[in-house]
Amino acid sequence: MQFVTENLQILFTGLGLGSIYALVALGFVLIIRATNVVNFAQGDFAMLGGYAMVLFFTGLGWPYWIAFIGALLAMAVFGVLFNYGVYYPLRHRSFLPVLISTLGASIFLQNTVLYVAGPQPKPLDKLLNFDGITLGGVFLDSQYIVILVATVALVFFTFLFFEKTLLGKKLQATSQDKDMARLLGIPVALMIAITFIYSAVLGGIAGVLVGPILFVSIGMGSIIALKAFAATIIGGFGDVKGAIVGGLLLGVIESLAAQHISVPYKDAYAFLALFLFLLFRPQGIFGEKVSEKA
């Protein structure tokens, strides 16, 4: 019985962490699809979201939901700035200059926040005002529950948005073939800007959600982003389903392996999984044409 509760406990936190990887991975994937570029500042979107929430909620004392919406609006504005500052001027270049540009943006963002907010990590309140519930010997942290629910909701929303709305379909068309989309009268630059906005907001939500658990710090995004990037490869490079499944899988694999094999090698399992996938199924779980993009 103890064995079962222990593993359920591990599974729960693994899924919670996995959801965060999945959310950030989703942001990765949307931008990969729209621009063919890996956005190395994706983790810093989460960091910025976390700091925006700390500023509005803890600093200015706004009510939680107002602060939350404020943080998301701030992230949307930031998405616009990021698009026009980091991506747009290089849009006609190959993917490498854009990639380096996002890397530079990541370093710039981290050091700017360090300068403005100071180096001390900040605590953030949980969304629900109880710590968690114990169910059959398994402790369910209320914030992890929020994270799981929010991830499911966001995935569902993303699916509906892309499959059921005209705007979503235009975005898809842009990501599949820019020239064709342009011929059909779709404003490609605007579509890409919208993708950056959406991806920045997603990253911001991830930051606000994970803040109460990992605390809001300059480096919080880089740790998550590395795992999220591994998740996008495991799931299938540029595949939305893959990002979700890859993220969850990674969270569960590393938690279970940490429990049953050895804790200090926890991070190694995630990357061992990545390594095995690259060896035996380089296209990932749902991917098809990795060779074309590699």
């Binding site: 103890q2 222990e6 406990q9 591990i10 936190t13 693994g14 962490l17 658990i213 990992l214 480096g219 740790i223 998550i224 938690s255 940490a258 429990q259 804790v263 200090p264 926890k266 991070d267």
Partner: peptide
């Protein structure tokens, strides 16, 4: 005696080991 690497995001396995 239980080690962990710096910047761990989750200590559940460590805590369970202490409990056990």
């Amino acid at each position: 005696v239980q080690g962990y690497t710096n910047n761990s995001q989750d200590f559940t396995p460590v805590v369970l080991a202490i409990k056990k």
